[in-house]
């Protein structure tokens, strides 16, 4: 009974093919990793584009300062501080300011009382 075994070693062609396959695997992995990192770098470009959109819009506006908004001037003149341009007036403080955290329950109480008086 005879035992047949394969010849060890490899021919030039086999070596090239074997290394070629390894090289392909390494390149595919590298390309994939590059795609991943590029993708990550590009993944928040839309944030810059949206920000740029807002700044462009700002530049196109005729009025670019809040206190020059004609309707802001009007709401203080007509309603929040009648007859004058007083920021943080009593009415503005009542309508436009709030409280935080543990002050909230007392604040709600205060608002309810204010309504009963009014």
């Amino acid at each position: 009974m005879s035992i047949f075994t394969e010849k060890v070693g490899m021919t030039r062609r086999q070596f090239l093919k074997g290394s070629g396959m390894l090289a392909v695997a390494v390149i595919v992995t590298g390309v994939f990793a590059k795609i991943g990192f590029d993708a990550f770098a590009a993944s928040d470009e839309y944030i810059d584009q949206r920000i740029a959109g807002l700044y462009t819009l700002d530049e196109q506006m005729a009025i670019r300062k809040s206190h020059e908004n004609p309707e802001i001037i009007q709401i203080y003149q007509d309603f929040l501080s009648p007859g004058e341009q007083k920021y943080l007036s009593e009415k503005a403080h009542h309508l436009l300011h709030t409280k935080y955290g543990k002050d909230i329950p007392a604040f709600i109480e205060e608002l309810n009382q204010h309504r009963d008086v009014a």
Partner: peptide
């Protein structure tokens, strides 16, 4: 009208640093 007019300062509220700049 009445509470619809806006300025550039308000527009940039949407971007980081916008409230500060306004």
């Amino acid at each position: 009208r009445f509470i619809g007019a806006s300025t550039g300062a308000a527009t940039i509220f949407g971007a980081t640093g916008g409230v500060m700049e306004a």
